[in-house]
Design a protein around this nucleic acid. Structure first.
Lengths: 157, 157
DNA sequence: AACCGCTGCTTGATTGGTCAAGCAAATATG
DNA sequence: CATATTTGCTTGACCAATCAAGCAGCGGTT
């Protein structure tokens, strides 16, 4: 990368090529498709769903903005805005953090929990149909590891 | 999906779960990472790169907006805006379509072609390092087919 | 105990995309 | 052949994300 003058690198094989193209397509299409399924079905966009989901998996249904943002793969400001949206719907409430007065906790309300319960069948179905279904013959654990690597890879040069 | 009252569907296995989580991460992280690599190196965001790429693969380096949008997985208006950006950089020119006076062709200029030549090593390296590298043991053709399915799946219910 | 830099979060400006409405050319219809 | 409908693309309004700047509270230094 830092040596773009390396004139003509080895091009992709045709298999690599079609994999890359297919991935490009999936990255564009899948989130919108799942989103559409969910919005159509239960009025909960994927980002908001993910936030609620992560909150619900915590013992006391609350989390610092920081941590939640990381789990949702969102910038901190993006998270702030998502939580505001959820707050105005009454699905989440914000409470100052006890041990650090700068911090906030996003807290899942009962309404939020109920909403999540309502939504997750939709989400589950969408994920299965749009994604998992297509990987039936595969070693899922191996696949998951590969994806994790791709997601976390740091520049190696 | 259309029966959300189907109370408690079968939850995901833990393998499915981690695959889905990993995918979520990849979908967020990968495009930005590749984009960052390219912008850092050669100032060409991924969307614009993809447009130039598709134009270059055409015999006379031109294409209707319609078709180009589909290949770039972009809405028609999104495509219009991308082409405008490229046009102001002189990398693409627009010409009225001969056989249909409503239509436009996006035409890759020589500058555009040169720019693409400059950029593709970056792009190639980014794709390899961020993605392909992590799927070394896999049957790439099979994987590509699965992804294509996921990208094109229509609601089945 | 007064300061200084760091941290946690929000806010403002910008970006890159979407959908819906608009316009002009093409095509189908009475 | 006049008019209605459809098509191809652009434009306007909007939206959700980003980054950069701001602000308040924390903690270490002296």
């Amino acid at each position: 990368m830092s040596n773009p003058s390396a004139a003509t690198p080895q091009p992709l094989t045709s298999e690599e090529e079609s994999l890359v193209r297919a991935l490009g397509q999936v990255m564009h299409v899948l989130p919108r498709a799942i989103d559409a399924d969910m919005v159509g079905d239960r009025q909960l966009p994927l980002t908001e769903y993910t936030a609620l989901m992560n909150l619900s998996e915590t013992p006391d249904r609350r989390m610092r903005m920081n941590e939640l943002a990381a789990l949702c793969h969102l910038s901190l400001s993006g998270m702030t805005r998502t939580i505001i949206r959820l707050e105005t719907q009454g699905l989440v409430r914000r409470e100052r953090c006890e041990e650090d007065a700068r911090g906030w906790n996003a807290v899942l309300t009962d309404a939020g929990y109920a909403r999540l319960q309502e939504s997750w069948p939709s989400h589950l179905a969408a994920v299965r149909r749009r994604f998992l279904q297509h990987f039936e013959g595969f070693d899922l654990a191996q696949l998951a590891r590969a994806f994790q690597g791709a997601g976390t890879a740091e520049p190696t040069d």
